[in-house]
């Protein structure tokens, strides 16, 4: 009789409240944490040099000069453009292959030159940078389609390097003007 009782008590721990505890923890985590999307535009800065940069003669047709003034207005190759037109213009400039005398001779020689005022807003700067990146991404994608029959995203790293060698992304940022 006695023995029987003892075996019954050490039967099993009631796991019914386990769900409640787990729910409590779950709700705690749900409330306290925010899924932060850590995303951004990748960029590489040039190394710092104390000397003023040397003047390298470049044919002006190969430079896409983009100026953003203090009112966030754009001047692209001497013409006023809106931000919505910039991507197509930049794409036309990169992939010109010598057709238009004012645009680049070939993608390898194309350089984008960015200049802004000190009071240009960061938002305007980022949208210009974004549009130029978008133009290059489009060019890379089309080149990838032509060469490897696949989207640029899906290529292997050596393949991507090959495409970037053909269409290099060169953005030169001038010192901002003091306005």
């Amino acid at each position: 009789m006695l023995k029987n009782k003892r075996t019954r008590t050490s039967d099993e721990i009631n796991a019914g409240s386990m769900a409640d505890i787990a729910f409590l923890l779950l709700i705690f985590f749900l409330v306290t944490t925010t899924i932060s999307a850590e995303k951004g535009i990748m960029a590489k800065l040039p190394p710092y040099d104390d000397d003023p940069p040397q003047h390298v003669p470049v044919n002006t047709r190969n430079i896409l000069s983009v100026k953003v003034n203090k009112d966030d207005l754009l001047l692209v190759k001497g013409k006023e453009l809106s931000i919505g037109e910039l991507k197509d213009f930049a794409y036309g400039f990169i992939m010109n292959y010598g057709k238009d005398d004012n645009l680049s001779e070939k993608p390898k020689k194309a350089i984008v030159s960015l200049q802004n005022d000190r009071s240009t807003s960061y938002e305007a700067y980022i949208s210009v940078y974004n549009e130029i990146k978008a133009a290059y991404n489009q060019a890379w994608n089309e080149q990838a389609e032509k060469r490897f029959n696949d989207e640029y995203e899906n290529l292997t790293i050596p393949q991507k390097k090959e495409i970037q060698k053909e269409i290099p992304l060169v953005i030169s940022e001038a010192e901002p003007t003091e306005i």
Partner: peptide, 17 residues
């Protein structure tokens, strides 16, 4: 310019989609 002086050349401009 300060980041360039420190020779940390890889940067990310954080942005939302």
């Amino acid at each position: 310019t300060e980041i360039r002086k420190a020779n940390r050349l890889k940067i990310h401009y954080m942005a939302n989609q």
